[in-house]
């Protein structure tokens, strides 16, 4: 086989290889959806974040509006300090409520934002004051059993 024919084959190989990688990025992965343009950062404190992880989505009304950038433990307040990166296009009032939800019964956890009614919007580096922790299944079950037990006693 002469050199030019080899060149051709290698060219085809390289092209489809790169195409496959791009395909993985676009069609399979979430490169297109996670590609948030400019962002602003807000933080929120939680007593318990459950299974929340960095890069988990932040949704409002079911639409992905940002991602979790970092999760730290704040030793002053003994809370989890979660840093959110939100899309510049979406603005939320100052009194927005941040909840940790679970997708489905056993799915991944995400933060849901419920806008309040404040006139002013959240700015870069603001803190979301109102938060609700992750639902811990064991706690719920034990509460349920406890209430059942007290019910039957009466």
């Amino acid at each position: 086989m002469d050199r030019t024919k080899i060149d051709l084959w290698v060219g085809i190989f390289a092209a489809i290889g790169v195409a496959a990688l791009l395909g993985l990025a676009m069609k399979v992965g979430n490169l297109t959806t996670s590609n948030i343009g400019e962002t602003y950062t807000v933080t929120a404190g939680f007593q318990n974040i459950g299974g929340l992880k960095p890069r988990s989505p932040v949704k409002s009304a079911g639409v992905v509006v940002g991602r979790i950038d970092a999760i730290q433990f704040d030793s002053a307040t003994y809370e989890a300090k979660v840093t959110l990166k939100l899309d510049k296009r979406y603005l939320f009032p100052k009194d927005t409520f941040a909840n940790i939800y679970t997708a489905g019964l056993l799915g991944e956890q995400y933060i849901g934002l419920e806008p309040g009614g404040d006139e002013e919007y959240l700015q870069d580096n603001d803190k979301i004051m109102q938060t609700q922790d992750a639902v811990v299944l064991e706690k719920m079950i034990s509460q349920f059993l406890y209430s059942k037990a007290t019910e039957t006693k009466e």
Partner: peptide, 19 residues
């Protein structure tokens, strides 16, 4: 099939790490 895949496969954590 495709939408669930795209929602769960992360470009940086899955595709890039595999690469």
């Amino acid at each position: 099939f495709w939408s669930q895949m795209q929602a769960s496969v992360d470009f940086r954590e899955d595709v890039m790490n595999g690469f």
